[in-house]
Amino acid sequence: MSLALKNIVKSFGATAVLKGVDLEVGKGELVALLGPSGSGKTTLLKIIAGLEWPDSGMLEVDGENWFDLPARRRQTGFVFQHYALFPHMSVRENIAFGLRVRPRGLRPARAKIQARVGELLKFLQIPHLADRYPGQLSGGQRQRVALGRALAINPKLLLLDEPFGALDAAIRRDLRRWLRQVHEATGSTTVFVTHDQEEAFELADRVVVMSEGRIEQIGPADVIADRPATPFVARFMGATVSLRVRLAGGRAVEEDLDLSALPPSDLPDGPADLVIRPEDIRLQRAERSAWNIRARSSNGPRVHFALQHRDGTEAEAELARRDADPTLVEGQRVRVQILAGAVFAQPAAKASAPTHSSKLKETIQ
C-alpha cells in the first residue's frame, strides 16, 4: 500500500507541533522520520496510526481517506519504544493478542491463530521463547516479540516509534540489520521514527528530516549527507563550523581559505554562509597564513584542532590520528583547505552585516 499526507496541521493548546506537513510513502518503502526532540515526528506517526487527530489535513492510503476510519479499522501494526507487552501473557499469547481481540466475524479460528503465531515465532527466530513471559526476556527479545505482535494481523502499514531506543548500542546494530531483513522478507510498507542518524541511514530507503513541525529535506542518506537542503539539515548532520564567504561566478571564495575543492553553485553572487563538518577541513603548515592552531587535543583515534584567524575568528578541524601531521602543534600557522561543505546565500538583513568569518556553536538536542 501507499500513503499520502497532505498539509497536516496539529497543535496542542498554543503550541504548533505540525505546520503543514506533506509526505508520500510508496508501496513497500521503508521511510525514516528523523529529527531532534520536539520536531513533530512522533505526533505525525501517531496521526497515521489513528492515535492522534490533526487539526486539518488529509491522510490517504491507497486512495482511501483514513481520517474516516477509526484506529481499530486501519490495520496498522504499531511497535513502541518500550515494547508495551502484556506482562501476564506469554510470548505466544502476546503475539496472538491482536488476532484474538478482533470482532467475532473477523476473528480467525483458533487453529489458524495458532498456526500464524507458530509461523511468526520461527520467522522471528524465537520459537524457544514461546512460553516465557516478558519479565524473563532480554530487551532485544522483547522487541522481537513486540514486532511479532504487530505483524500478526498482516498490517497494511507497519509503524515503529524509536524501536531500538531502549537498547544498548551493540544490540541496536544487530537488530537494525535484522529489521531490514524482516522488511524485505515481508514487503511491508514501513514508517519509523528515530533521532539516531546512523539508524535512519542504515535502515531507510528514504529519510525525512524534520525540525519544528516542518519537513526540511527528504531523500536517501547520501544526498542528505552530501547535499543538505537547509542550514538546519547541514548542522544536524554535524556541520558545526560556519564561515562567511563570498559567491562570485558560482564559486565560493575567501582570501584566507582554500575553497578550490568545492563544486560550483547556482546561487547568485554575494555574501554566503559556508557550513562545514570539522572532519572536512585539512591543514598544512604555512608560515604566512592568517590562521593558526590555538590548541590541539586527542581522544585517541582522532585529533582535534582549535583554529583562530588573525581577526579573532575561530573554527575547528578534526582528523584521524594517523592522518594528522605531528608537526601541526599549538601556535603553528596553517593553510586551511575545505574539502566539502554546504553553501547558503545569506538573507538580505544578514548580508548587510560585517562579512568576517564566524564559528557557529549550536547544540542540537
Score class of each variant (00 low, 15 high):
Ser2Thr: 12
Leu3Ala: 05
Ala4His: 09
Val9Gln: 11
Lys10Met: 14
Gly13Arg: 05
Ala14Cys: 00
Lys19Ile: 06
Gly20Ser: 11
Gly20Pro: 08
Gly20Lys: 07
Glu24Leu: 05
Val25Lys: 00
Val25His: 01
Leu30Met: 15
Leu33Thr: 07
Leu34Asn: 10
Gly35His: 13
Pro36Phe: 01
Thr43Glu: 01
Leu44Gln: 01
Trp53Pro: 00
Trp53Val: 02
Ser56Thr: 07
Asn65Asp: 15
Ala71Cys: 04
Ala71Lys: 01
Arg74Gln: 02
Phe80Tyr: 14
Tyr83Arg: 09
Leu85Trp: 13
Leu85His: 12
Ser90Ile: 02
Asn94Phe: 08
Asn94Trp: 09
Val101Ala: 02
Gly105Ser: 13
Leu106Pro: 01
Pro108Tyr: 08
Pro108Asp: 11
Ala111Gln: 13
Ile113Ser: 09
Ile113Met: 03
Arg116Asp: 03
Leu121Ile: 09
Gln125Gly: 04
Ile126Gln: 06
Pro127Val: 07
Ala130Trp: 06
Arg132Thr: 11
Gly135Asn: 08
Leu137His: 12
Gly140Val: 12
Gln141Lys: 10
Arg142Asn: 12
Gln143Asn: 12
Val145Asp: 08
Ala150Pro: 09
Leu151Ala: 09
Ile153His: 01
Asn154Gln: 15
Pro155Asn: 05
Glu162Leu: 03
Arg172Glu: 05
Arg172Ser: 06
Arg173Glu: 14
Asp174Phe: 00
Arg177Cys: 10
Arg180Cys: 07
Val182Asp: 05
Thr186Glu: 15
Gly187Met: 10
Val193Thr: 04
Thr194Met: 04
Thr194Ile: 05
Asp196Tyr: 11
Gln197Phe: 04
Gln197Lys: 02
Glu198Pro: 02
Phe201Lys: 06
Phe201Ser: 05
Leu203Val: 07
Leu203Tyr: 00
Leu203Trp: 01
Glu212Cys: 04
Gly213Pro: 05
Arg214Thr: 14
Ile215Ala: 09
Ile215His: 04
Glu216Asn: 07
Gln217Gly: 13
Gln217Val: 08
Gly219Arg: 09
Ala225Ile: 10
Ala234Asn: 10
Phe236Asn: 06
Met237Cys: 12
Ala248Ile: 07
Ala248Lys: 14
Gly250Trp: 05
Arg251Asp: 05
Glu255Pro: 07
Asp258Trp: 09
Asp258Ile: 10
Leu259Trp: 03
Pro271Ala: 13
Val275Ser: 11
Asp280Trp: 13
Asp280Asn: 15
Ile281Arg: 06
Arg285Cys: 07
Arg285His: 15
Ala295Ser: 15
Val303His: 03
His304Gln: 13
Phe305Asn: 09
Leu307Gln: 11
Leu307Tyr: 08
His309Trp: 11
Arg310Cys: 12
Ala315Thr: 04
Ala315Tyr: 04
Glu316Gln: 14
Ala317Gly: 11
Glu318Tyr: 00
Leu319Arg: 09
Asp323Val: 01
Asp325Lys: 03
Arg333His: 15
Arg333Tyr: 10
Val336Met: 09
Gly341Trp: 01
Ala345His: 09
Ala348Gly: 04
Pro354Glu: 07
Ser358Trp: 08
Leu360Ser: 14
Leu360Ile: 12
